[in-house]
């Protein structure tokens, strides 16, 4: 658990001739230009209310995420340009197990949605922050920052216990996952560590600006591309599965917790808005609502897709279910004790 797994050329295929890059440019231009006649041809056929609603919700999720994503990439670029591995080593305790809770507390300082946290965590790990510590930051930041605390308090008026429970449970999940990776990384070989693609191109490393721009290119496209894939799924669920279907199981204790955990995963709401949806799920117990609030910012379909892009697919297939199980369990226990 001391050295991050760095595979520098994992996704760079062997160089091909310039003609191979050429077709891609034409494919992009062709798609964009084809959109103009498509609009005229399909015009009225696109009028079905389901499709239009889906388009609006899908585009809303993407549009809403773009500024946060750009902010996250900027921060990640700044980290790459300004933070040296020596500085990281001096700031964090040598013992990764001690650094994990510090990363959780540092998460309070990044008041954004989930989308910004993924590139920032990737940038931190590239600068020598132990992967487990970066993962804790990734899980904590979207759930415990002041913007989320305030929006939760506004949504659940007069329910300070809910705000406290959300903070405690989210922080516990982030720290527990970090400790799982610290403690088991060497003993359990099956545990996948995040794969970090380093920036290896010579000219990127020359100046601070070069490093900044290099990191921005490197982080932005995978994060944005996978974000769109997550948004496709989330918008489909949002439009095709009405809340009423979910509410049908509100009465059953265990089923309702599992259903809301699954629902939080697939609808992928922004962590600053989910409290308002949670409070409207009146058919559910407070504990089930808490599970919804804790699982959502820690793991949803959008985040899972982005993490697969940032840290590798094999890592994601293990990390995503692990976080879902830990988050659901911790939130249920915290809810049982505090609510």
């Amino acid at each position: 658990m001391t050295t991050p797994t760095v595979t520098s050329t994992a996704t760079t295929p062997p160089r091909r001739g310039p003609s191979r890059a050429g077709w891609q440019v034409w494919a992009v231009l062709g798609t964009l230009l084809a959109a103009v006649p498509a609009q005229a041809l399909l015009g009225t056929r696109l009028d079905s209310p389901v499709f239009q609603t889906w388009s609006t919700v899908f585009l809303a999720i993407v549009v809403q995420s773009i500024p946060f994503l750009v902010l996250g990439v900027l921060l990640s670029g700044l980290i790459s340009a300004l933070l040296s591995e020596r500085l990281v080593a001096r700031m964090l305790p040598k013992n990764a197990a001690l650094a994990v809770p510090i990363a959780g507390i540092a998460g309070i300082g990044l008041p954004t949605c989930e989308c910004a946290a993924v590139p920032v965590a990737g940038g931190l790990a590239r600068r020598g922050v132990p992967p487990a510590v970066a993962l804790t930051f990734l899980l904590a930041a979207p759930a415990v920052n002041p913007a989320v605390i305030v929006s939760t308090a506004v949504a659940f008026q007069g329910r300070a216990d809910m705000v406290v429970a959300r903070f405690v449970a989210s922080m516990l999940v982030a720290v527990l996952i970090g400790w799982i990776y610290v403690g088991l990384a060497q003993r359990v070989p099956a545990l996948q560590m995040p794969r970090l693609r380093a920036i290896v191109h010579g000219h990127d490393g020359e100046t601070k600006i070069g490093r900044f721009v290099g990191a921005a290119w490197h982080d932005l496209l995978p994060a944005a591309g996978f974000l769109v894939i997550g948004a496709l799924i989330a918008a489909s669920i949002n439009v095709l599965v009405p809340l009423r279907i979910v509410e049908a199981v509100g009465g059953q204790v265990v089923v309702s917790i599992l259903v809301l955990a699954a629902f939080a995963f697939v609808v992928a709401l922004c962590s600053e808005a989910d409290a308002f949806i949670a409070v409207s799920l009146t058919a559910f117990s407070d504990t089930a609502k808490l599970v919804f609030l804790v699982v959502g910012p820690a793991m949803d379909v959008k985040l899972a897709a982005m993490e697969a892009g940032q840290f590798g697919r094999r890592f994601a297939t293990q990390f995503v279910p692990l976080v879902l199980v830990v988050a659901t369990t911790v939130a249920s226990l915290v809810g049982w004790v505090l609510l």
Partner: peptide, 10 residues
């Protein structure tokens, strides 16, 4: 080259 993931097409 700076190739990135095919997901960028999305």
């Amino acid at each position: 080259d700076h190739a990135t993931t095919p997901a960028a097409w999305a």
